[in-house]
Design a protein around this nucleic acid. Structure first.
Lengths: 262, 262
DNA sequence: TTGGTCTGTTGGTATGACTTTAAGCCACTG
DNA sequence: CAGTGGCTTAAAGTCATACCAACAGACCAA
């Protein structure tokens, strides 16, 4: 019945006193939006996640069960699951004992978004690198202030590992990324740690494509890492910042100028 | 024919010399994954986007057309579109002249990811606020260095607008967010601008839920904005940083400590 | 200007067949 | 007699087909 809405509207107008005002007082009606059913399902499940009724690792009911529980068809449920999957909130496994499993929230989604932004918009890798530089430099004072002895030990251990890897020629960008992430963890601020991690996703991709790391590069970088840790241990914010600045700038110079998406 | 794969595998084993090694050298076989058809479609469209064969604003063919072009059913196409939509790559409109439209890449997706991370993981709003503080303070030197006269004029105009809004009592968080975004734009680095914008999405939500802005607060913030602009105009990095620091810290104090997801 | 109708497009449902996966069972073989 | 491999079954996701509903813009007539 496509004419029903207009009838209803007209009826309301007739209820009002037509002599006094020609139109409704404006702002009385909220725009009614009957969004997609699948979207409503997504919202419901999101809320459940947010209110922690669903924990990471939990398994949602099977598609067929969800159908009956929501009172919709399987196609609709599946579209909702696709959305949730694309948002990185659930992981879908096929086969017996399969189904939709709630995933632990991670920085991967943010990283992916960042990577998309990088590759789909006129944002150059150099710009992202600069943003990263600002951020990683900005947290140095926090790190100097907050790093515990355990943090320092962990960083030193990481440096030892990396030195060994450099000797064997197995040092790669991922190790460097690990170091920077561990450094960020010293802020004891999960948001900062995840953000730094997010940066490294697209960064890695961009660098890996550009060129593989040269052994000399790795050696130098690894040494700078160690110097940075010692500056931290000495609680010397100035020195630590300076070391990190030159370290990051050297890395940055390798991606300078190139457009990312092409 | 469910038995074919195992036969094939056995044939390969017979090809190798069984006497020499008991098992494959490990890492020889890559995990074969026949991913979903809908995912393949998503990938195709993503690459089209990435290689700029599809521009923002373009309209994809209708679902039915895509069906025939990809040689799949509508259900599959629709699932692919759901994924793309959830990733923020296309926007789907219904009705005649509707369809899937390529969206301009924006910071919204990153912001949403950030918001999810915030509300779904044990990250507190205070932590995010701190991250934002680090970032927005870190870019101040860049801004002092790079802000053009046009930038300063635009910022001053914004301040005038806001002062007017404060008088009328219509000043809100969104205006403040606008200011900070415009400030970030002065770096002339799109990545930084988008990142700041991303921060403001979840920030706004968190603050709007917490409490609406008090008029006095708006007045003070607005004045600080203007002082910041003048410090910029004087190319005084120290002063600008200090103003921004106190400004941000005051905002930060309002979300201090509370868990976000609950 | 208003209102109706047309038409193209997405949204949703129903049903069914196919594939993949895990688990259990069982015969064969060393 | 223990282990391997093959077979069966059940559960679950994946995809196809067909159909109808709802919507939004365009067009047209009173």
């Amino acid at each position: 019945m496509p004419s029903r809405p207009s009838h209803a509207r007209r009826a309301e107008n007739e209820d009002a006193t037509p002599a006094k005002r020609t139109a409704a007082p404006e702002g009385l009606f909220k725009t009614v939006s009957s969004s997609r059913v699948s979207q409503l399902i997504v919202d419901q499940i999101r809320t459940l996640l947010k209110e922690e009724h669903l924990q990471p690792g939990d398994r949602l009911p099977s598609e067929r069960d969800l159908c009956t529980q929501f009172g919709v068809s399987r196609v609709t449920v599946r579209e909702a699951l696709r959305s949730l999957e694309a948002s990185g909130l659930v992981e879908i496994r096929v086969g017996a004992r399969g189904g939709a499993f709630v995933t632990a929230p991670s920085s991967r989604r943010v990283g992916e978004g960042l990577a998309d932004l990088l590759s789909l918009s006129p944002v150059t890798a150099a710009e992202v690198t600069e943003a990263r530089l600002v951020f990683e430099l900005g947290i140095v004072p926090l790190i100097v202030e907050r790093a515990t002895d355990e943090d320092l030990d962990a960083l030193r251990a990481l440096c030892d590992e990396h030195a060994e890897a450099v000797k064997q020629g197995t040092y790669d960008m991922e190790m460097s990324a690990d170091f920077h992430t561990r450094v960020a963890a010293c802020t004891h601020n999960a948001a900062i740690e995840m953000l730094v991690q997010s940066f490294h996703g697209p960064m890695l991709m961009s660098l890996r494509e550009a060129q593989s790391i040269e052994p000399r590069m790795g050696q130098k970088g690894s040494k700078e890492h160690r110097a940075f840790v010692e500056a931290l241990a000495a609680r010397d914010a100035e020195a630590a910042t300076e070391i990190m600045r030159t370290h990051l700038k050297r890395t940055a110079s390798r991606v300078k100028g190139e457009r990312s998406g092409k």
